[in-house]
């Protein structure tokens, strides 16, 4: 890391700003898309075509009364939503939003922390995020919250295994054309683009892509895996007792996690900032960097749309179905995938 501190700080602010401004856009998109899927109109009064609706929601949330149930320990109750939100935002540090920007003699990779352990950091921060849900459920001192927290911890542990194992398959493929594999997301994107469209890992590791996407849905608690907050059974699950801005923080964390999950999937499998059929230089000027950012966010937006579409299309799993899918189908499949990928890489086919 031989770049000046102020540059890193600037990039960190940029990444954080992007994430925080994506959340209201995603909330609005969710409401409009769900309306479109259900043949309704959706929020269209505030601002142009409802574009100011998230702002109105925020104001509403700010002015609501903060309710804290009796017999609730204050510190953990307050800390839980913060843990969820912070863990999602830490992950943006290693998301490669673009290639390497060349300004004069400076070469600036468009990622906050271009570190060797990139993808491991995402997994680590994701596993810390579980504490927010579990502790929020426990500290609320309510049976629905406790059940939601228990479900979330069990679900996260189960699907983290599949997430990690499918990721190993991907990393094996990135190692095939070089001496070593890499955990660095920026480097993974660069390696995908070396051979054009066929190098994108969605084509080289399709099974891992499907498994990773399923696990990402489970890790972000999106439907069909939203059992920790299943409204019909648990009122609101782990956030039943939360109101006002504390609830808002949970909400923010959930959408930020969805955004980051889409970013990671785009970087890992969909070629990151590269356009198909266009060979690009690895190092670009300002215009090229802007174009790469646009491509990246276009892909991320498409994936977020997929997230939303799935939520309003599929019904929720039953709890035993969720566990069966995780342990009896996804995990063995991920193991077999790892074995087959390893064999293919070893014999030089991939």
């Amino acid at each position: 890391m031989n770049e000046p501190l102020w540059l890193t700080a600037l990039k960190a602010l940029g990444a954080l700003g992007i994430t925080l401004s994506m959340v209201p856009i995603m909330v609005l998109a969710e409401r409009r898309v769900s309306a479109w899927i259900q043949y309704r109109i959706g929020p269209n009064r505030v601002g142009f075509a409802g574009s100011m609706q998230p702002l109105a929601d925020l104001v509403k949330m700010l002015f609501k009364e903060e309710v804290r149930p009796r017999g609730v320990g204050s510190f953990l109750f307050t800390a839980a939503p913060a843990i969820t939100a912070i863990s999602a935002m830490v992950m943006t540090a290693v998301i490669p939003f673009g290639g390497t920007l060349v300004l004069g003699e400076h070469r600036i990779p468009l990622v906050v922390a271009n570190v060797d352990i990139g993808i491991l950091l995402v997994l680590a921060a994701g596993s810390i995020g579980v504490y927010g849900l579990t502790l929020g459920g426990w500290a609320s001192n309510s049976k629905y919250s406790l059940l939601g927290g228990l479900r979330s911890s069990a679900q996260m542990i189960s699907y983290e295994l599949t997430l990690g194992l499918s990721l190993l398959g991907v990393l094996l493929v990135t190692a095939s054309s070089h001496d070593f594999g890499t955990f660095n997301l920026h480097e993974i994107v660069v390696r995908q683009a070396e051979v054009g469209l066929t190098g994108w890992l969605i084509f080289k590791a399709p099974v891992a892509f499907v498994l990773f996407t399923i696990s990402a849905f489970a890790e972000t608690n999106r439907l069909p895996f939203d059992l920790p907050e299943a409204e019909p059974e648990l009122v609101g699950g782990y956030h039943t007792e939360y109101s006002s801005l504390r609830f808002g923080l949970f909400f923010l964390g959930e959408y930020a996690a969805m955004f980051v999950a889409s970013c990671v999937i785009v970087a890992l499998f969909l070629g990151g900032w590269h356009l198909p059929f266009v060979t690009e230089r690895a190092e670009v000027g300002v215009v090229g960097a802007l174009q790469q950012l646009l491509v990246y966010f276009g892909k991320v937006g498409a994936f977020v749309f997929f997230f939303i579409h799935v939520r309003w299309t599929l019904p929720r799993f039953r709890y035993d179905q969720l566990m069966d899918l995780g342990w009896k189908l996804a995990l063995p499949l991920a193991l077999v995938n790892l074995l087959v990928t390893g064999g293919l890489v070893a014999f030089g086919i991939l």
Binding site: S127, L146, L150, I157, E160
Partner: peptide, 12 residues
């Protein structure tokens, strides 16, 4: 992420 979550799960 894994071991202590498991502990917490069992305690709860």
């Amino acid at each position: 992420g894994a071991i202590m979550v498991l502990f917490l799960f069992v305690i709860l």
